[in-house]
Simulated scan of single mutants.
Amino acid sequence: MNRLAKLQRAFQTFILNADNAIRQEVTDTAQAPAPERLGIYSIAYRLRLLEALQTDYTALHAALGDEGFEQLCFAFIDVFPSTYPNLRWFGANLDAYLETTPPYADIPVLAELARFEWAKGLAFDAPDDTFLSIQEIASIPGENWPDMAFQTHASVQRLDLFSNAALIWKAVAAEQEPPQPAYTDGSLAWIIWRHDLKVFFRSLTVDEAWAIDNLQQGACFAEICTGLCEWVDEIHAAQHAAGLLKGWVESGMIRSVQLKA
């Protein structure tokens, strides 16, 4: 390794891990001693990561306040130093950190709020994709409908939350006073997706959540109809499944259909 590469590696190690091996390579100046000169870069790096987290987690920032959010982020940076060349992905583990690290672990809504905001970001950044139309489904002969299998749009995200994190985010986004954290005994299903450059989200009933989850796992229309019999009678299962499918297609959640062999 040549000298320049060694210096670059030592400088990076200092920025990421506070290793002072680079100190002997940096000279003092009349304006600032070497530790201060190095510190400028270290602080700037952490502030840039903080800025990235502020962009991704606006509602969490609002919930914790400036000082609380800053403390969280700097602690997170120490535990999860960036390993990504693209800052977009730096905050991927924040929900897990909040879920397992005191004192945040004692306030479950914080981890769920982070999880919700991250899922919205994933939906927004998902690659462009095609949308299935009602006309395309209508063109499939009725005898083939039982074998239809669908693929969801690349932006579709599914979450199960025990708190009102989604409502807190909605209030913050509307610049309204957010509700106090609240929790349910059982999880509430949510779906998030992008359509025409806008991100949408809504809650799901238990049967719809089951249906969309199984659709994403490759279940065909007939299998979904059979599964829905847990909530509706067999006579109306196909009609109910068709109604759910129509809603997903019209909302832009489905990208394609194929006949399952």
Results as ranks from 00 to 15, higher is better:
2 N>Y: 00
4 L>C: 00
6 K>C: 04
6 K>I: 03
6 K>N: 09
7 L>W: 03
10 A>C: 11
12 Q>W: 13
14 F>E: 05
15 I>V: 15
16 L>V: 15
17 N>W: 12
17 N>S: 14
19 D>S: 13
20 N>A: 09
21 A>H: 13
22 I>A: 04
26 V>H: 03
26 V>E: 04
29 T>I: 03
34 A>R: 08
36 E>N: 07
40 I>R: 12
40 I>H: 04
42 S>N: 07
44 A>M: 09
46 R>L: 09
48 R>S: 10
51 E>H: 08
53 L>C: 11
54 Q>H: 14
55 T>R: 14
57 Y>C: 01
60 L>D: 05
60 L>V: 07
62 A>G: 01
63 A>P: 07
64 L>Y: 04
64 L>V: 02
66 D>N: 04
66 D>A: 08
69 F>W: 08
73 C>R: 08
74 F>I: 08
76 F>C: 01
81 P>H: 06
81 P>C: 03
84 Y>H: 15
90 F>M: 03
91 G>N: 09
91 G>V: 05
92 A>Y: 09
93 N>V: 00
93 N>H: 15
95 D>E: 04
98 L>Y: 04
98 L>F: 09
102 P>N: 02
103 P>E: 06
103 P>L: 06
105 A>P: 06
108 P>L: 02
108 P>Y: 05
108 P>D: 02
109 V>W: 02
121 G>T: 01
122 L>C: 14
122 L>D: 12
124 F>P: 10
129 D>T: 15
131 F>L: 12
132 L>H: 11
132 L>Y: 08
133 S>R: 09
143 E>Y: 10
144 N>M: 05
148 M>K: 07
151 Q>E: 15
155 S>L: 06
159 L>D: 01
160 D>P: 00
160 D>Q: 12
166 A>C: 06
166 A>G: 08
167 L>A: 08
167 L>N: 05
168 I>Y: 05
169 W>H: 09
174 A>M: 04
177 E>N: 07
182 A>F: 07
185 D>R: 14
192 I>D: 00
194 R>V: 03
194 R>S: 01
195 H>S: 05
195 H>P: 01
199 V>Q: 04
205 T>A: 07
205 T>I: 00
207 D>W: 11
208 E>V: 13
209 A>P: 13
212 I>L: 06
212 I>F: 08
216 Q>Y: 02
216 Q>V: 05
217 Q>K: 15
217 Q>L: 11
218 G>N: 10
219 A>V: 04
219 A>M: 10
220 C>D: 14
221 F>W: 14
222 A>R: 13
226 T>F: 13
227 G>K: 14
231 W>P: 07
231 W>T: 11
235 I>A: 11
236 H>I: 03
238 A>P: 04
240 H>M: 08
242 A>P: 07
242 A>G: 12
244 L>D: 00
245 L>C: 05
245 L>T: 13
247 G>E: 15
247 G>R: 15
251 S>Q: 15
253 M>K: 13
254 I>F: 12
257 V>T: 15
258 Q>T: 14
259 L>D: 10
